[in-house]
Design a protein around this nucleic acid. Structure first.
Lengths: 340, 340
DNA sequence: CCTGATCCTGCAAACGTCTGCAATTACGAA
DNA sequence: TTCGTAATTGCAGACGTTTGCAGGATCAGG
């Protein structure tokens, strides 16, 4: 199987004895062309199965009609949903999408940015990696006036548009729910502390506690590296606490699921012995036993909004000033939190 | 924020008072250049933060170093894993990847092919949509000598390379496992009959039965459209059967999970009343209660192999003759199948 | 029959890069 | 000093499109 050969305008032109410019005009339905000529060309193009060379086109008009997307990992259901929303919306508006994953590595993230920029994408949608705690590469994009929008895992200070969930609000909802259920000693399992969502969700957690007159108790905050091993470590540590907390709120569902599984293997009964809750509403959370109380974040919607705003910026519809879009989350109460 | 401006070779050339061709040669480390000139240029390029315009480059050499990927849906964990494998491997070999989803629609699939071809991808990796039961668009690619490889959801007759799982083998494994467990009346929940995997898995199911001297029983085969509603319908139908089957083997995990959930809500005990098994080993299957017996398909590996072979073809390393790579699956026995 | 307008089409340059070839310079040897 | 050769650089055309401009044809009106 050899390198496929694509029909070009030149070949259509030769076949019909007209110039390439005429072909070009015919195919974009220019009004300054004789209808008959146009008809013949369009017909011939279809017959020869002509497909425009987007590369050449992009080069000429210096717009690629392509967007770049960088997510930490595609295999996460949440990010996959975001991507899905981005794709569908971008396609509807005539844009293609190049997707990269940083695999939670800042170096990979930088490399992704480089290739996407080299590929002349018209704009970028970025969700930062876990490792990303320095932001020169983003400021660099900013300085070069390359359009981009941050979503979900954002950096707050940089003056570009961002789409986030109301993470603090979601954490507040779930903590409040646990408090209402009668739980008072509520433990928060956080991710690494410099993560945007770690901070925000802790904020909401503390706010809910405060409303019940409960102050921050360092012994009721644990930090996991978010790996399976570390989640198990945390689960074990909690199991050994004396007294144990009434309830445990994990920053993300996978942690809660790992903790739950570990506890089940130790014979700890949930929710009888402790209440448990997560965050994100992964598909998994609905089917574990007991079903996991969590907070739902519509990823598809987030992707859609992020890309819509980026395209509005590119098309000059949106104002040039960066905005911050905050999506609300919804509490999904399930059996795992029915402790009392 | 205005359209970002990229540094070009021309600007470096002007700044240094040399020609563009010299810049080009310096940047690709041509040996026919004075070392000193080369050094100066490379230095200046770095200082000005020059990034090559991949579009122009691709146009010039008529190779885009980009591959196109089409999957039915990104949000499926299995396909996300494939994509991940494809990405990592492609990047390692200097290729970029454009990902599209067909959303299980043949029209979308065709549209995806069109845009990817227009984008001058060097090759395609395609997993067919559920709707795809006509294949002109693939033969068209073939006729135009565009390299592509089919994976997972393939069409058998078309003379291109394919990467699949031993679906029949996997179904055999799981059916055999159920038989060994003492089950005899084993019901198979299939997907739409024209689907490649529906057929293959049925094949393995029947083969295992045959080895136990059991023939095909049409009343023990149900077909689901693979939607939630239809899975529930099937679950109900099975529940109402009299006598019920000993065991149920679902073509894919999500069906098994839906069925399980429905049965639990009806108070049917699994595996006490019936054994249950799925296929694919989704993350969900490990955490449902009871954990679901299934067959694991390493998607990351599949993606890796598919893209490796495609790149080998492109680079002329692999023979031009299409090959068929078949990956073996592994039985993952869990509690849901411990009926007797 | 002339003039001007209108309609249609082609020429050529441009987008940014690569590369065969020609041109220039430098250098050593005779 | 004069060549020949090698080393270094530039020119120009190409990849496939798009588009401003100019040119040719046609036509109507005077």
């Amino acid at each position: 199987m050899k390198k496929g050969h694509q029909i070009t305008m030149k070949e259509i032109a030769k076949k019909l004895g007209v110039s390439v410019s005429t072909i070009s005009r015919a195919l974009k339905d220019s009004p300054e062309l004789h209808p008959e000529t146009k008809r013949k060309i369009v017909e011939m193009a279809k017959e020869m199965n002509y497909q425009p060379n987007l590369l050449a086109q992009s080069l000429r008009i210096s717009r690629s009609k392509t967007l770049g997307v960088i997510v930490p990992e595609i295999t996460s259901h949440f990010f996959a949903s975001c991507i899905s929303g981005i794709q569908d919306t971008a396609n509807k508006r005539g844009y293609n999408v190049m997707i990269c994953q940083s695999n939670e590595s800042i170096e990979q993230e930088k490399a992704n940015i480089r290739t996407l920029v080299s590929s002349q994408v018209d704009g970028l949608l970025i969700s930062l990696s876990r490792e990303t705690n320095t932001f020169e590469h983003l400021y660099d994009l900013y300085d070069r006036e390359i359009n981009f929008v941050l979503f979900d895992r954002v950096q707050e200070d940089i003056p570009v548009s961002k789409v986030t969930f109301n993470d603090a609000g979601g954490a507040y909802q779930v903590t409040h729910h646990l408090l209402e259920g009668g739980n008072r000693r509520i433990l928060y399992v956080s991710g690494p502390e410099d993560l945007y969502i770690s901070k925000k969700r802790k904020e909401g957690y503390l706010k809910a506690l405060a409303e019940y007159g409960i102050g921050e108790d360092p012994s009721l905050i644990k930090i996991s590296e978010l790996t399976l091993d570390d989640n198990i470590r945390v689960a074990n540590e909690i199991a050994e606490m004396n007294p144990r907390p009434d309830a445990v709120f994990c920053m993300i569902d996978p942690v809660a699921v790992d903790v739950l599984t570990q506890w089940k293997s130790m014979g700890i009964k949930i929710p009888e012995e402790m209440a448990l809750a997560g965050f994100t509403n992964n598909p998994t959370s609905a089917v574990v036993e007991p079903p996991l109380t969590t907070v739902s974040q519509p990823g598809y919607e987030m992707g859609k909004l992020a890309v819509s705003h980026l395209l509005d910026q590119l098309d000059g519809i949106a104002s040039e000033d960066p905005i911050s879009i905050v999506l609300e989350t919804t509490l999904v109460p399930r059996k795992s939190s029915q402790h009392f």
